[in-house]
């Protein structure tokens, strides 16, 4: 062991993005089982886990499963540092030998971990659908008002409390377009705020869509004899479900975004 390891944290000049994980792994020493450990951090070039004893060998074979259904990968690791933490010593190791395939799997795992593309694209697609929905509604509102006031000379009732509804419709359009126009990618805290704003706007649009879907249900639009009207009802129902799920996905993503930004901030500070 010698002086190679320090009990105090040194400023780590790592160039590899490190993500927090909770993966069970087995340590083997010269071909025989040594210990089961809980891997707490994983990077493309190393792992960190807790060992109870301060003194342990300098190198191990690590058998790690990235998910319960994958084959365990064997990686030769070398201990780089130890840090006293509650419950033992956080042991940081670098990969000494990995197969190309295993390295690729680890790279993909970390890329997937830091990626938030899926839910953020779903939010954007939801906002896009709402924008289309808002546009046709405004147009249909104008056509309806025109026919009611001109062709039928006011004999038909105007849309629900005309000006209030028009205001609601314009607000819905503004929220949908804003949610769609705001960027979906989160690369820093500023972008995170924009992402939150986009989600809040979409939440407002979602309230409108759900209210309309409930109203359609109440007037039995889904039982209409016209395919066009029934199709419209189901399209609206799909929109409400899709936007709701996209928002739920976005809310579920918030903690992850915060975590990823923290990881990246630490990573950047080490890269400087």
């Amino acid at each position: 062991m010698g002086d190679k390891f320090s009990a105090r944290p040194s400023r780590n000049k790592r160039a590899f993005l490190r993500v927090p994980v909770r993966l069970r792994a087995k340590l083997y020493l010269k071909g025989s089982f040594y210990r089961t450990v809980l891997v707490q951090e994983l990077s493309t070039n190393g792992v960190a886990f807790i060992l109870k004893e301060e003194s342990s060998p300098d190198a191990f074979d690590l058998y790690l499963q990235l998910n319960p259904f994958s084959k365990a990968m064997k990686i030769r690791i070398e201990v780089r540092n130890r840090l006293k933490v509650p419950g033992g010593f956080r042991t940081g190791c670098s990969f000494a030998e990995t197969s190309e395939k295993d390295q690729q799997l680890i790279d993909e795992y970390i890329s997937r971990f830091v990626s938030i593309a899926g839910p953020s694209i779903a939010l954007n697609v939801g906002a896009f659908f709402c924008s289309i929905d808002a546009s046709w509604r405004i147009l249909a509102y104008a056509i309806h008002s025109y026919y009611v006031s001109r062709q039928f000379a006011g004999t038909l009732p105007q849309p629900i409390a005309q000006y209030f509804y028009l205001f609601t419709l314009l607000l819905y359009a503004a929220l949908s377009f804003t949610a769609f126009a705001l960027p979906a990618y989160v690369i820093d805290r500023k972008a995170e705020r924009r992402f939150l704003l986009s989600m809040e706007c979409l939440l407002g649009a979602f309230v409108f869509v759900v209210t309309k879907s409930v109203l359609y249900w109440q007037v039995h639009l889904w039982r209409s004899e016209y395919l066009l009207v029934r199709g419209f009802f189901w399209a609206q129902f799909f929109l409400a479900c899709y936007v709701g799920l996209a928002i739920a996905g976005g809310i579920g993503l918030l903690r992850k975004i915060d975590l990823i930004l923290q990881i990246e901030e630490v990573h950047r500070s080490h890269m400087r």
Binding site: H144, P157, L215, L221, V229, F232
Partner: peptide
């Protein structure tokens, strides 16, 4: 009466 205008009113 005015079936589609009524539907349009409900839909917007």
């Amino acid at each position: 009466r005015n079936v589609f205008l009524q539907y349009l009113r409900q839909m917007i």
